Computed example of a mutant assay.
Amino acid sequence: MLVLAAVAGWPLARTIAFSLTDAKLSALGSHRFVGLANYIGPHGVLWDPQWWGAVGNTLVFTGASVALETLLGLGIAMLLDHPSRLRALLRAAVLVPWAIPTVVSARMWSWMLHDQFGVINHALMAVGLIQEPLAWTADAQLSFITIVLVDVWKTTPFMALLILAALQTVPGDCYEAAQVDGVPPWYVFTRITLPIIAPSVAVAVVFRALDALRVFDVIYVMTSNSRATRSMSVYVREQLVDFQLVGTGSAAATLLFFTIAAVTIAFMAVSRAPLKDVP
């Protein structure tokens, strides 16, 4: 508890304390108490349209990326769960994108998606899918979709690994009994596999959602401070570093913390709700 208080509690308390002041990065030692002005004042975070734009971007990013990663991770996990001589090699290969540091993978994809020199545009033009190079990370209509897909490529192996571990816990007797009774594969999946692995999948979704709500590196590396892709973490960084407004940035960081806490509580409440019998 002492270690947790030192590592997590003290920085959080200090951030909340700074959010109640007019502290600036250039003069951090001289600041005064302003109460909730950084939250609900005339120039407070909650009155800033850019903050709410960042909130919307973050929630949409989280919902889209987590949904795609869960579906793809489930499919990959079920494929890897089948006996095969190459199963160990395939499991190791699937984890390669997840093992690459996010900043490195984001920079790698930035070059691959470059509008003039990127290999993605070159390949798509070679097969006739596009007529001219696309600005994947500069075009406001494409940049958000691009970062979602890059994040899905990066984190799907994490979901696949957790779901694969859950599939290992399904008793083989259930599958043998279903095979003897001639149960169709879809019913086996929906009535046996899915109910058993559902709690583990829910935990994986919670972990991934919490991580997605804090997304910063992939967005900042690929699109910087673009309004179309700005997340809550990028907004916090902009206030703290670019504008040097420690009080405003701390208020935004505090709101981000409580948003993550609220989503965590909501996920836990849903996952603990009793499942209704399916007719």
Results as ranks from 00 to 15, higher is better:
residue 157 P to V: 02
residue 158 F to G: 03
residue 158 F to T: 04
residue 160 A to D: 02
residue 160 A to F: 08
residue 161 L to E: 08
residue 162 L to F: 11
residue 162 L to Y: 09
residue 163 I to K: 01
residue 163 I to W: 08
residue 163 I to C: 12
residue 165 A to Y: 02
residue 166 A to M: 03
residue 167 L to W: 05
residue 168 Q to G: 03
residue 168 Q to K: 05
residue 168 Q to A: 13
residue 169 T to G: 05
residue 170 V to G: 09
residue 170 V to K: 03
residue 171 P to W: 13
residue 172 G to K: 05
residue 172 G to R: 02
residue 173 D to H: 02
residue 174 C to D: 03
residue 174 C to P: 03
residue 174 C to Y: 15
residue 175 Y to Q: 12
residue 175 Y to S: 07
residue 175 Y to L: 13
residue 176 E to K: 06
residue 176 E to C: 12
residue 176 E to L: 13
residue 177 A to T: 05
residue 178 A to N: 02
residue 180 V to E: 10
residue 180 V to D: 03
residue 180 V to Y: 02
residue 181 D to Y: 02
residue 181 D to L: 09
residue 181 D to G: 13
residue 182 G to A: 08
residue 183 V to R: 01
residue 183 V to I: 03
residue 183 V to K: 01
residue 184 P to G: 09
residue 185 P to F: 08
residue 186 W to K: 04
residue 187 Y to I: 00
residue 188 V to D: 04
residue 189 F to P: 01
residue 190 T to H: 12
residue 190 T to K: 12
residue 191 R to S: 14
residue 191 R to P: 10
residue 191 R to I: 10
residue 191 R to K: 14
residue 192 I to G: 03
residue 192 I to T: 02
residue 193 T to D: 04
residue 193 T to F: 01
residue 193 T to G: 06
residue 193 T to H: 00
residue 193 T to C: 02
residue 194 L to G: 10
residue 194 L to I: 05
residue 194 L to D: 08
residue 195 P to S: 06
residue 195 P to W: 01
residue 198 A to W: 10
residue 198 A to K: 07
residue 199 P to R: 08
residue 199 P to M: 08
residue 199 P to D: 11
residue 200 S to L: 01
residue 200 S to Q: 07
residue 201 V to Q: 00
residue 201 V to N: 04
residue 203 V to G: 09
residue 204 A to D: 14
residue 204 A to M: 02
residue 204 A to N: 12
residue 204 A to G: 15
residue 205 V to M: 15
residue 205 V to T: 12
residue 206 V to F: 00
residue 206 V to L: 15
residue 206 V to S: 10
residue 206 V to A: 14
residue 207 F to A: 01
residue 208 R to C: 13
residue 208 R to T: 06
residue 208 R to D: 13
residue 209 A to Q: 11
residue 210 L to K: 08
residue 210 L to Q: 04
residue 211 D to N: 13
residue 212 A to V: 10
residue 212 A to Q: 10
residue 212 A to D: 11
residue 212 A to K: 11
residue 213 L to G: 13
residue 213 L to H: 10
residue 215 V to A: 15
residue 216 F to K: 12
residue 217 D to V: 03
residue 217 D to M: 06
residue 217 D to H: 00
residue 219 I to E: 05
residue 220 Y to S: 09
residue 220 Y to K: 05
residue 221 V to E: 11
residue 221 V to Q: 06
residue 221 V to I: 15
residue 223 T to Q: 02
residue 223 T to L: 00
residue 224 S to I: 05
residue 224 S to R: 15
residue 224 S to C: 05
residue 224 S to D: 14
residue 224 S to F: 05
residue 225 N to T: 14
residue 225 N to R: 14
residue 225 N to A: 13
residue 226 S to F: 05
residue 226 S to D: 07
residue 226 S to N: 07
residue 229 T to P: 01
residue 229 T to G: 01
residue 230 R to S: 00
residue 232 M to H: 07
residue 232 M to V: 15
residue 234 V to T: 14
residue 235 Y to E: 04
residue 236 V to M: 14
residue 238 E to L: 04
residue 238 E to C: 05
residue 239 Q to T: 10
residue 239 Q to R: 06
